[in-house]
């Protein structure tokens, strides 16, 4: 029995050590962002600046808009394709999965190096705006969104549902938007959450294409006003944490009825 007690003690000590390791840098962020650099006094100036500094608010606005456009693009591109593959071209399942997971093996850095020609055209056709980043962000979030949606879609007998709807005279458009989509809604929402979190934290492509998204501005501002950039870093991290926690709740809701 002493062995079991000792193991329990060791286990909690180890867990505490891990907790300290993970929490310390985050506490340091909080500490740094609430301290005045010169006077060493506590101050909320850095956090207030998040809503007042025009560079920062502009960057936050850009990043949130970008996240929204990316999610819309991802849903429009991926969801109909995945449903269509399941219903009509099951032979292409492997290929689509491979393509969706491909961005995991091609680093974002490589994509941005080869992106110049493509973006010359994009900027020529739709203009020069940070929102054009959404085109390539849709590709970046594909692997994560694919997994989330695929999990939902696999739990569904899509073929039977589609046959039932078709035999009642529904068009394929109706089948996709009004029969299948409501059933895989948690998966789509989950994919959207991950996409938002990824876009808000994306730095590689936006910094190398010189668009001022939130992470880029955080780095820029750090040279002039370190506490403000620390506050922005912590705020965006917490925002992503809330999103991904929400995702885990969705996950549980989906599993509970299916588990019985």
């Amino acid at each position: 029995m002493t062995g079991a007690v000792a193991w329990r003690a060791v286990r909690w000590l180890l867990l505490l050590a891990f907790a300290a390791y993970f929490v310390t840098p985050l506490l340091a962020l909080l500490n740094f962002s609430t301290k005045d650099v010169l006077t060493k006094q506590r101050s909320g100036a850095a956090w207030r600046a998040l809503t007042q500094d025009p560079t920062m608010t502009e960057a936050i606005r850009t990043s949130l808009l970008l996240a929204l456009v990316t999610v819309v693009g991802m849903v429009l591109l991926l969801v109909p394709t995945m449903i269509w593959v399941r219903l009509r071209v099951p032979g292409a399942t492997r290929m689509i999965e491979f393509l969706c997971l491909l961005p995991l093996t091609i680093p974002a850095l490589v994509i941005v190096v080869g992106l110049r020609n493509v973006y010359a055209w994009v900027n020529y056709l739709v203009g020069d705006s940070p929102l054009t980043l959404a085109f390539v962000y849709v590709v970046l979030v594909l692997p994560y969104s694919y997994r989330a949606i695929d999990a939902s879609l696999s739990a569904l007998d899509a073929t039977t549902l589609a046959e039932a709807a078709r035999s009642l005279g529904a068009s394929w458009f109706t089948v996709i938007t009004r029969v299948i989509l409501p059933n895989i809604w948690p998966g789509v929402l989950g994919g959207a959450f991950i996409a938002v979190a990824l876009v808000l934290g994306e730095y590689t492509i936006s910094s190398l294409t010189h668009y001022n998204t939130l992470p880029v501005v955080i780095v820029l501002i750090s040279k002039a006003d370190a506490p403000e950039s620390m506050a922005a870093a912590l705020a965006s991290l917490l925002f992503a944490a809330v999103l991904l926690m929400g995702l885990s709740f969705l996950d549980r809701r989906r599993r509970t009825p299916g588990g019985n």
């Binding site: 310390t24 840098p25 340091a28 962020l29 979190a197 808000l200 934290g201 870093a233 944490a241 885990s248």
Partner: peptide
């Protein structure tokens, strides 16, 4: 643990770099 790990592993590296600079 799984939620925190999800955030730290998937959310951008900029914030993590700053967390260590602050430390």
């Amino acid at each position: 643990v799984t939620s925190v790990c999800g955030v730290l592993a998937q959310f951008g590296g900029v914030t993590l770099a700053f967390a260590w600079i602050a430390t």
